[in-house]
Amino acid sequence: MCSLSHNDLQRIFEKLDKNGDGLVSLDELNWLLEKTTGGSSISLQELEELLVGKKSLNFDEFVFFYDSISNRKINDDEEEVVEEEVESDLEKAFKVFDLNGDGFISSQELECVLKRLGLLEEQSGNKDCRAMIFSYDTNLDGQLDFEEFKNMMMLTTS
């Protein structure tokens, strides 16, 4: 799972907090988990159990929840398993962006997904997405294949 900065988490929290009350509900948190895990779902009851009965999270609790699910201690025996999990997670993430299933992420697909997730302003548009793709497009074909996507994700998490 890639690490997000405090500012990234703040932006995500604010987007999730639809009613502006300073809290993210279980429904909102569950929606985010479904979107970021490729549709695999956890029941609201299971999520509530994870959150020790809480019905919503303030920003600090949201950051703590993020930290608790993203930070894993790794020992030598688990390293290979974790690498496989990372590869699998990256494949799932790639499929989220590869809307037409052709094995490539175009700037249009990137724009569509980022807007749907609320991570790209409407006015920003395709120009910014083309620039993002260009930054990691090693074969200069104007789109990202899985290896380019993987390199991008691994570089941004280091």
Rank of each mutant, 00 (worst) to 15 (best):
S3Q: 13
S3C: 03
L4M: 13
H6T: 09
H6G: 01
N7H: 14
L9N: 07
L9P: 06
L9D: 02
Q10H: 11
Q10M: 08
I12R: 04
K18R: 15
D21A: 06
L26A: 03
D27Q: 13
E28G: 02
E28T: 08
E28M: 07
W31A: 09
W31N: 07
T37G: 06
G39W: 14
S40V: 12
S40R: 14
I42G: 00
L44H: 08
L44I: 07
E46Y: 00
E46W: 03
L47T: 10
E48L: 01
L50W: 03
K54T: 04
K55I: 01
S56K: 12
F59E: 03
E61P: 02
F64I: 02
F65M: 05
S70E: 00
N71Q: 13
R72F: 08
I74C: 08
E79Q: 15
V81Q: 14
V81H: 12
E84S: 07
E85D: 06
E85Q: 09
S88D: 13
K92D: 14
A93R: 13
A93I: 02
F94N: 03
F94V: 09
F97N: 06
D98I: 11
L99E: 13
G101C: 03
G101P: 12
D102A: 11
F104Q: 15
F104N: 08
I105L: 02
I105R: 11
S107P: 15
E109D: 15
E109P: 07
L114E: 05
L114S: 07
K115H: 03
G118Q: 12
L119Y: 08
L120F: 07
L120G: 10
G125S: 10
K127M: 04
C129A: 14
R130W: 01
S135F: 00
Y136K: 01
Y136L: 00
Y136P: 02
D137W: 13
T138D: 12
N139V: 10
N139E: 09
G142T: 09
G142V: 10
Q143I: 00
L144Y: 13
D145Y: 13
F146Q: 01
E147I: 14
E148M: 08
E148K: 12
F149N: 09
M153Q: 06
M153F: 03
M154H: 01
T157S: 15
